[in-house]
Design a protein around this nucleic acid. Structure first.
Lengths: 194, 194
DNA sequence: GGAATTACTTTACATTATGTCAAGTGAAGG
DNA sequence: CCTTCACTTGACATAATGTAAAGTAATTCC
Protein backbone atom coordinates (compact mmCIF):
# COMPACT_ATOMS: atom_id res chain seq x y z
CA UNK A 1 0.00 0.00 0.00
CA UNK A 2 1.71 3.16 -1.23
CA UNK A 3 -1.26 5.15 0.01
CA UNK A 4 -0.74 8.07 2.37
CA UNK A 5 -3.20 6.64 4.87
CA UNK A 6 -2.22 3.22 6.13
CA UNK A 7 -2.10 1.95 9.66
CA UNK A 8 1.50 0.80 9.35
CA UNK A 9 2.61 3.94 7.58
CA UNK A 10 1.20 6.02 10.40
CA UNK A 11 2.79 3.83 13.03
CA UNK A 12 6.14 4.35 11.32
CA UNK A 13 5.67 8.11 11.16
CA UNK A 14 4.72 8.24 14.82
CA UNK A 15 7.68 6.05 15.73
CA UNK A 16 10.01 8.27 13.70
CA UNK A 17 8.70 11.33 15.46
CA UNK A 18 9.00 9.85 18.96
CA UNK A 19 12.40 8.38 18.27
CA UNK A 20 13.71 11.71 16.95
CA UNK A 21 12.15 13.53 19.88
CA UNK A 22 13.82 11.18 22.36
CA UNK A 23 17.19 11.61 20.72
CA UNK A 24 16.93 15.26 19.78
CA UNK A 25 17.14 14.51 16.12
CA UNK A 26 20.48 12.79 16.00
CA UNK A 27 21.65 9.20 15.90
CA UNK A 28 18.33 7.73 14.88
CA UNK A 29 18.65 4.89 12.36
CA UNK A 30 16.07 3.34 10.12
CA UNK A 31 16.32 0.16 12.16
CA UNK A 32 15.60 2.07 15.38
CA UNK A 33 12.47 3.53 13.89
CA UNK A 34 11.38 0.15 12.55
CA UNK A 35 11.90 -1.47 15.91
CA UNK A 36 9.90 1.23 17.67
CA UNK A 37 7.09 0.92 15.13
CA UNK A 38 7.07 -2.84 15.65
CA UNK A 39 7.78 -3.63 12.02
CA UNK A 40 10.76 -4.92 10.10
CA UNK A 41 13.32 -2.53 8.71
CA UNK A 42 12.22 -3.50 5.23
CA UNK A 43 8.65 -2.57 5.94
CA UNK A 44 9.85 0.99 6.42
CA UNK A 45 11.39 0.94 2.95
CA UNK A 46 8.10 -0.37 1.64
CA UNK A 47 6.46 2.89 2.69
CA UNK A 48 9.32 5.34 2.29
CA UNK A 49 11.89 5.07 -0.47
CA UNK A 50 14.70 6.68 1.49
CA UNK A 51 15.46 7.99 4.93
CA UNK A 52 15.04 11.50 3.55
CA UNK A 53 11.55 10.67 2.31
CA UNK A 54 10.66 9.41 5.75
CA UNK A 55 11.98 12.54 7.45
CA UNK A 56 10.15 14.85 5.09
CA UNK A 57 6.96 12.85 5.55
CA UNK A 58 7.45 13.12 9.30
CA UNK A 59 7.57 16.92 9.14
CA UNK A 60 4.37 16.95 7.09
CA UNK A 61 2.80 14.53 9.55
CA UNK A 62 3.75 16.89 12.38
CA UNK A 63 2.38 19.91 10.54
CA UNK A 64 -0.92 18.11 10.38
CA UNK A 65 -0.92 16.75 13.92
CA UNK A 66 0.05 20.10 15.36
CA UNK A 67 -2.31 22.06 13.15
CA UNK A 68 0.28 24.63 12.19
CA UNK A 69 -1.89 26.05 9.41
CA UNK A 70 -4.60 26.97 11.84
CA UNK A 71 -2.10 28.42 14.26
CA UNK A 72 -0.56 30.62 11.59
CA UNK A 73 -4.00 31.79 10.54
CA UNK A 74 -4.23 33.96 13.65
CA UNK A 75 -1.42 36.10 12.29
CA UNK A 76 -3.08 36.33 8.88
CA UNK A 77 -6.25 37.80 10.35
CA UNK A 78 -4.50 40.42 12.45
CA UNK A 79 -6.02 43.90 12.03
CA UNK A 80 -2.80 45.72 11.20
CA UNK A 81 0.79 45.10 10.12
CA UNK A 82 2.32 45.62 13.50
CA UNK A 83 0.10 43.13 15.28
CA UNK A 84 0.45 40.74 12.40
CA UNK A 85 4.22 40.77 12.80
CA UNK A 86 3.88 40.09 16.51
CA UNK A 87 1.34 37.31 15.98
CA UNK A 88 3.46 35.66 13.31
CA UNK A 89 6.52 35.58 15.54
CA UNK A 90 4.39 34.14 18.30
CA UNK A 91 2.93 31.41 16.10
CA UNK A 92 6.06 30.38 14.24
CA UNK A 93 8.45 30.97 17.11
CA UNK A 94 6.45 28.70 19.36
CA UNK A 95 6.17 26.05 16.67
CA UNK A 96 9.95 25.71 16.31
CA UNK A 97 10.52 23.76 19.55
CA UNK A 98 7.76 21.35 18.59
CA UNK A 99 9.38 20.39 15.34
CA UNK A 100 12.98 20.98 16.31
CA UNK A 101 14.05 17.35 16.62
CA UNK A 102 12.71 16.38 13.23
CA UNK A 103 14.03 19.58 11.71
CA UNK A 104 17.43 18.87 13.19
CA UNK A 105 17.57 15.45 11.53
CA UNK A 106 16.66 17.05 8.24
CA UNK A 107 19.24 19.80 8.67
CA UNK A 108 21.85 17.15 9.34
CA UNK A 109 21.11 15.46 6.04
CA UNK A 110 21.04 18.84 4.35
CA UNK A 111 24.77 19.25 4.76
CA UNK A 112 25.73 16.16 2.81
CA UNK A 113 22.77 15.36 0.61
CA UNK A 114 21.80 17.72 -2.21
CA UNK A 115 18.29 16.30 -2.41
CA UNK A 116 17.83 16.83 1.30
CA UNK A 117 19.09 20.38 0.93
CA UNK A 118 16.41 21.02 -1.65
CA UNK A 119 13.73 19.48 0.57
CA UNK A 120 14.74 21.55 3.58
CA UNK A 121 14.97 24.67 1.45
CA UNK A 122 11.42 24.08 0.31
CA UNK A 123 10.14 23.75 3.84
CA UNK A 124 11.92 26.93 4.83
CA UNK A 125 10.49 28.81 1.87
CA UNK A 126 7.11 28.40 3.50
CA UNK A 127 8.44 30.23 6.55
CA UNK A 128 9.87 32.91 4.30
CA UNK A 129 6.45 33.43 2.79
CA UNK A 130 5.09 34.01 6.26
CA UNK A 131 7.83 36.55 6.92
CA UNK A 132 7.15 38.24 3.60
CA UNK A 133 3.42 38.45 4.34
CA UNK A 134 4.04 40.08 7.71
CA UNK A 135 6.47 42.60 6.23
CA UNK A 136 4.11 43.35 3.35
CA UNK A 137 1.28 44.01 5.78
CA UNK A 138 3.52 46.46 7.59
CA UNK A 139 4.45 48.10 4.31
CA UNK A 140 0.83 48.46 3.23
CA UNK A 141 0.16 50.28 6.49
CA UNK A 142 3.00 52.64 5.59
CA UNK A 143 4.66 51.42 8.77
CA UNK A 144 7.75 49.69 7.42
CA UNK A 145 10.93 51.38 8.58
CA UNK A 146 12.67 53.34 5.81
CA UNK A 147 15.90 51.52 6.65
CA UNK A 148 14.74 48.42 4.81
CA UNK A 149 13.23 47.51 1.51
CA UNK A 150 10.45 44.94 1.73
CA UNK A 151 12.85 42.36 0.39
CA UNK A 152 15.62 43.14 2.86
CA UNK A 153 13.27 43.22 5.81
CA UNK A 154 11.90 39.83 4.78
CA UNK A 155 15.38 38.35 4.56
CA UNK A 156 16.38 39.76 7.90
CA UNK A 157 13.23 38.58 9.65
CA UNK A 158 13.73 35.19 8.05
CA UNK A 159 17.21 34.92 9.54
CA UNK A 160 16.04 36.06 12.96
CA UNK A 161 13.30 33.43 12.94
CA UNK A 162 15.42 30.64 11.48
CA UNK A 163 15.62 27.33 13.31
CA UNK A 164 19.39 27.87 13.55
CA UNK A 165 18.99 31.16 15.36
CA UNK A 166 16.40 29.67 17.68
CA UNK A 167 18.76 26.77 18.30
CA UNK A 168 21.69 28.97 19.17
CA UNK A 169 19.76 31.23 21.52
CA UNK A 170 17.83 28.55 23.38
CA UNK A 171 20.33 25.67 23.28
CA UNK A 172 23.75 27.34 23.27
CA UNK A 173 22.90 30.55 25.11
CA UNK A 174 20.27 29.08 27.41
CA UNK A 175 17.43 31.45 26.68
CA UNK A 176 13.99 30.33 27.79
CA UNK A 177 11.35 29.96 25.13
CA UNK A 178 9.47 32.92 26.61
CA UNK A 179 12.58 35.09 26.49
CA UNK A 180 13.17 34.07 22.91
CA UNK A 181 9.65 35.05 21.84
CA UNK A 182 9.61 38.29 23.81
CA UNK A 183 12.96 39.45 22.53
CA UNK A 184 12.27 38.52 18.95
CA UNK A 185 8.99 40.37 18.99
CA UNK A 186 10.56 43.42 20.60
CA UNK A 187 13.52 43.34 18.22
CA UNK A 188 11.34 42.96 15.15
CA UNK A 189 9.15 45.86 16.22
CA UNK A 190 12.20 47.97 17.00
CA UNK A 191 13.84 47.52 13.63
CA UNK A 192 10.96 47.03 11.21
CA UNK A 193 8.16 49.23 12.53
CA UNK A 194 8.58 52.87 11.71
CA UNK B 1 57.03 13.29 12.73
CA UNK B 2 54.16 14.35 14.99
CA UNK B 3 55.57 17.88 15.03
CA UNK B 4 53.41 20.86 14.12
CA UNK B 5 55.90 22.09 11.57
CA UNK B 6 56.64 19.54 8.88
CA UNK B 7 56.73 19.99 5.15
CA UNK B 8 54.27 17.19 4.53
CA UNK B 9 51.96 18.27 7.30
CA UNK B 10 51.78 21.73 5.80
CA UNK B 11 51.18 20.35 2.34
CA UNK B 12 48.27 18.34 3.71
CA UNK B 13 46.79 21.37 5.48
CA UNK B 14 47.07 23.44 2.33
CA UNK B 15 45.53 20.67 0.27
CA UNK B 16 42.68 20.32 2.75
CA UNK B 17 42.02 24.03 2.58
CA UNK B 18 42.09 24.20 -1.22
CA UNK B 19 40.02 21.08 -1.59
CA UNK B 20 37.37 22.38 0.81
CA UNK B 21 37.43 25.76 -0.89
CA UNK B 22 36.89 24.15 -4.29
CA UNK B 23 33.99 22.08 -3.01
CA UNK B 24 32.49 24.59 -0.62
CA UNK B 25 33.14 22.41 2.34
CA UNK B 26 31.17 19.35 1.35
CA UNK B 27 32.01 16.01 -0.19
CA UNK B 28 35.71 16.18 0.51
CA UNK B 29 37.17 12.83 1.57
CA UNK B 30 40.45 12.05 3.24
CA UNK B 31 41.59 10.36 0.04
CA UNK B 32 40.84 13.49 -1.99
CA UNK B 33 42.97 15.58 0.32
CA UNK B 34 45.76 13.02 0.26
CA UNK B 35 45.73 12.92 -3.52
CA UNK B 36 45.84 16.70 -3.74
CA UNK B 37 48.71 16.85 -1.28
CA UNK B 38 50.55 14.22 -3.30
CA UNK B 39 50.80 11.77 -0.45
CA UNK B 40 49.15 8.49 0.42
CA UNK B 41 45.91 8.40 2.37
CA UNK B 42 47.77 6.78 5.24
CA UNK B 43 50.28 9.60 5.40
CA UNK B 44 47.40 11.89 6.31
CA UNK B 45 46.54 9.63 9.25
CA UNK B 46 50.18 9.77 10.26
CA UNK B 47 49.80 13.50 10.84
CA UNK B 48 46.18 13.74 11.91
CA UNK B 49 44.45 11.10 13.98
CA UNK B 50 41.00 11.70 12.56
CA UNK B 51 39.24 13.71 9.92
CA UNK B 52 38.02 16.02 12.66
CA UNK B 53 41.56 16.66 13.84
CA UNK B 54 42.54 17.58 10.32
CA UNK B 55 39.61 19.97 9.94
CA UNK B 56 40.30 21.68 13.23
CA UNK B 57 43.98 21.96 12.35
CA UNK B 58 42.95 23.47 9.03
CA UNK B 59 40.96 26.22 10.73
CA UNK B 60 43.93 27.02 12.97
CA UNK B 61 46.18 27.01 9.93
CA UNK B 62 43.84 29.47 8.25
CA UNK B 63 43.69 31.69 11.32
CA UNK B 64 47.45 31.94 11.11
CA UNK B 65 47.71 32.39 7.34
CA UNK B 66 45.00 35.02 7.32
CA UNK B 67 46.29 36.77 10.42
CA UNK B 68 42.91 37.00 12.04
CA UNK B 69 44.36 38.03 15.39
CA UNK B 70 45.92 41.10 13.89
CA UNK B 71 42.74 41.94 12.02
CA UNK B 72 40.64 41.72 15.16
CA UNK B 73 43.10 43.93 16.97
CA UNK B 74 41.79 46.95 15.11
CA UNK B 75 38.48 46.57 16.91
CA UNK B 76 40.20 46.17 20.26
CA UNK B 77 41.99 49.50 19.91
CA UNK B 78 38.90 51.47 18.90
CA UNK B 79 38.51 54.69 20.90
CA UNK B 80 34.92 54.10 22.01
CA UNK B 81 32.31 51.36 22.33
CA UNK B 82 30.32 52.36 19.30
CA UNK B 83 33.27 52.35 16.91
CA UNK B 84 34.53 49.17 18.51
CA UNK B 85 31.27 47.45 17.72
CA UNK B 86 31.44 48.64 14.12
CA UNK B 87 35.07 47.62 13.75
CA UNK B 88 34.45 44.19 15.22
CA UNK B 89 31.60 43.49 12.82
CA UNK B 90 33.81 44.62 9.98
CA UNK B 91 36.71 42.39 11.01
CA UNK B 92 34.80 39.25 11.90
CA UNK B 93 32.10 39.65 9.26
CA UNK B 94 34.70 39.90 6.54
CA UNK B 95 36.60 36.94 7.91
CA UNK B 96 33.60 34.61 7.65
CA UNK B 97 33.69 34.18 3.85
CA UNK B 98 37.39 33.37 4.02
CA UNK B 99 36.90 30.48 6.38
CA UNK B 100 33.41 29.48 5.33
CA UNK B 101 34.29 26.33 3.43
CA UNK B 102 36.34 24.87 6.22
CA UNK B 103 33.77 26.01 8.77
CA UNK B 104 31.04 24.34 6.74
CA UNK B 105 32.86 21.01 6.81
CA UNK B 106 33.23 21.32 10.56
CA UNK B 107 29.57 22.26 10.99
CA UNK B 108 28.62 19.19 8.99
CA UNK B 109 30.50 16.92 11.36
CA UNK B 110 29.06 18.82 14.31
CA UNK B 111 25.61 17.40 13.67
CA UNK B 112 26.60 13.76 14.03
CA UNK B 113 29.80 13.77 16.04
CA UNK B 114 29.79 14.88 19.67
CA UNK B 115 33.54 15.51 19.67
CA UNK B 116 33.18 17.68 16.58
CA UNK B 117 30.34 19.57 18.25
CA UNK B 118 32.64 20.34 21.15
CA UNK B 119 35.42 21.46 18.82
CA UNK B 120 33.16 23.75 16.85
CA UNK B 121 31.63 25.13 20.03
CA UNK B 122 35.12 26.00 21.23
CA UNK B 123 35.94 27.86 18.04
CA UNK B 124 32.68 29.77 18.26
CA UNK B 125 33.29 30.69 21.88
CA UNK B 126 36.19 32.76 20.64
CA UNK B 127 33.76 34.74 18.51
CA UNK B 128 31.46 35.11 21.47
CA UNK B 129 34.28 36.61 23.46
CA UNK B 130 34.73 39.18 20.71
CA UNK B 131 31.02 39.99 20.85
CA UNK B 132 31.13 40.25 24.63
CA UNK B 133 34.12 42.58 24.49
CA UNK B 134 32.37 44.90 22.05
CA UNK B 135 29.20 44.95 24.13
CA UNK B 136 31.17 45.54 27.32
CA UNK B 137 32.95 48.48 25.75
CA UNK B 138 29.59 49.94 24.84
CA UNK B 139 28.37 49.35 28.38
CA UNK B 140 31.41 51.02 29.91
CA UNK B 141 30.64 54.08 27.81
CA UNK B 142 27.12 54.05 29.26
CA UNK B 143 25.96 53.60 25.68
CA UNK B 144 24.36 50.15 25.83
CA UNK B 145 20.66 50.30 25.11
CA UNK B 146 18.51 49.75 28.19
CA UNK B 147 16.58 47.09 26.30
CA UNK B 148 19.36 44.57 26.82
CA UNK B 149 21.51 43.30 29.62
CA UNK B 150 25.15 42.85 28.68
CA UNK B 151 24.57 39.12 28.56
CA UNK B 152 21.52 39.32 26.31
CA UNK B 153 23.13 41.80 23.95
CA UNK B 154 26.14 39.52 23.66
CA UNK B 155 23.96 36.52 22.84
CA UNK B 156 21.99 38.47 20.28
CA UNK B 157 25.06 39.90 18.58
CA UNK B 158 26.56 36.42 18.56
CA UNK B 159 23.54 35.08 16.70
CA UNK B 160 23.55 37.92 14.23
CA UNK B 161 27.23 37.34 13.49
CA UNK B 162 27.01 33.56 13.38
CA UNK B 163 28.29 31.71 10.35
CA UNK B 164 24.78 30.29 9.90
CA UNK B 165 23.22 33.74 9.68
CA UNK B 166 25.91 34.89 7.27
CA UNK B 167 25.30 31.75 5.24
CA UNK B 168 21.58 32.29 5.02
CA UNK B 169 21.80 35.96 4.06
CA UNK B 170 24.59 35.67 1.50
CA UNK B 171 23.92 32.18 0.10
CA UNK B 172 20.17 31.69 0.39
CA UNK B 173 19.04 35.31 0.16
CA UNK B 174 21.76 36.48 -2.21
CA UNK B 175 23.06 39.42 -0.23
CA UNK B 176 26.43 40.78 -1.29
CA UNK B 177 29.19 40.75 1.28
CA UNK B 178 29.11 44.56 1.39
CA UNK B 179 25.36 44.56 2.03
CA UNK B 180 25.82 42.02 4.76
CA UNK B 181 28.45 44.11 6.56
CA UNK B 182 26.60 47.39 6.12
CA UNK B 183 23.31 46.04 7.35
CA UNK B 184 24.79 44.20 10.29
CA UNK B 185 26.65 47.28 11.41
CA UNK B 186 23.56 49.44 11.04
CA UNK B 187 21.38 46.89 12.79
CA UNK B 188 23.79 46.44 15.68
CA UNK B 189 24.06 50.18 16.15
CA UNK B 190 20.30 50.55 15.97
CA UNK B 191 19.54 47.98 18.62
CA UNK B 192 22.54 48.07 20.94
CA UNK B 193 23.64 51.71 20.99
CA UNK B 194 21.52 53.93 23.14
C1' DG C 1 -13.14 -23.77 -1.92
C1' DG C 2 -9.17 -22.82 -4.50
C1' DA C 3 -6.32 -19.03 -6.56
C1' DA C 4 -4.47 -14.70 -6.50
C1' DT C 5 -3.26 -10.52 -4.22
C1' DT C 6 -1.62 -7.77 -0.40
C1' DA C 7 1.31 -6.51 3.36
C1' DC C 8 4.84 -7.76 5.66
C1' DT C 9 9.11 -10.80 7.21
C1' DT C 10 13.61 -12.84 6.76
C1' DT C 11 18.06 -13.24 5.08
C1' DA C 12 21.70 -11.81 2.37
C1' DC C 13 24.35 -8.64 -0.03
C1' DA C 14 26.30 -4.18 -2.35
C1' DT C 15 28.09 0.26 -1.24
C1' DT C 16 30.89 3.94 0.79
C1' DA C 17 33.83 6.36 3.77
C1' DT C 18 36.53 6.25 8.04
C1' DG C 19 39.91 4.36 10.54
C1' DT C 20 43.35 0.32 11.74
C1' DC C 21 47.11 -2.84 10.95
C1' DA C 22 51.27 -4.82 9.34
C1' DA C 23 54.85 -5.26 6.25
C1' DG C 24 57.77 -2.98 2.88
C1' DT C 25 60.82 0.84 0.68
C1' DG C 26 64.27 4.27 0.14
C1' DA C 27 67.08 7.87 1.79
C1' DA C 28 69.73 10.15 5.51
C1' DG C 29 73.00 9.66 9.11
C1' DG C 30 75.98 7.68 12.67
C1' DC D 1 76.79 -1.35 7.24
C1' DC D 2 73.05 -0.78 9.98
C1' DT D 3 69.35 1.82 11.94
C1' DT D 4 65.87 5.13 11.97
C1' DC D 5 62.53 8.03 9.89
C1' DA D 6 58.86 9.30 6.82
C1' DC D 7 56.10 7.53 3.91
C1' DT D 8 53.82 3.70 0.84
C1' DT D 9 51.12 -0.38 -0.15
C1' DG D 10 47.49 -3.36 0.41
C1' DA D 11 44.30 -5.64 3.26
C1' DC D 12 40.77 -5.46 6.57
C1' DA D 13 37.07 -3.99 10.24
C1' DT D 14 33.01 -1.19 10.81
C1' DA D 15 28.53 1.09 10.32
C1' DA D 16 24.56 2.58 8.08
C1' DT D 17 21.78 2.94 3.88
C1' DG D 18 19.62 0.83 0.40
C1' DT D 19 18.58 -3.41 -2.78
C1' DA D 20 17.08 -8.00 -3.91
C1' DA D 21 14.72 -12.27 -3.56
C1' DA D 22 12.14 -15.72 -1.51
C1' DG D 23 8.78 -16.93 1.97
C1' DT D 24 4.34 -16.46 4.90
C1' DA D 25 -0.22 -15.48 6.51
C1' DA D 26 -4.48 -13.23 5.89
C1' DT D 27 -7.92 -11.30 2.82
C1' DT D 28 -10.46 -11.12 -1.38
C1' DC D 29 -12.27 -12.66 -5.60
C1' DC D 30 -14.46 -15.85 -8.63
Amino acid sequence: MADTSSKTRNRILKAAWQMLEDNQGSGVRMSDIAKRAGVSRQAVYLHFETRLDLLVATTLYLDEIKGIDKRLEASRTAPDGRSRLTAFIDAWGNYIPEIYSVAKALMTLEATDAVAAEAWKGRMQAVRHGCAAAIHALDRDGQLSATYTVEQATDMLWVLLSVRSWEQLTRDSGWSQADYIDHMQALARAIFVR
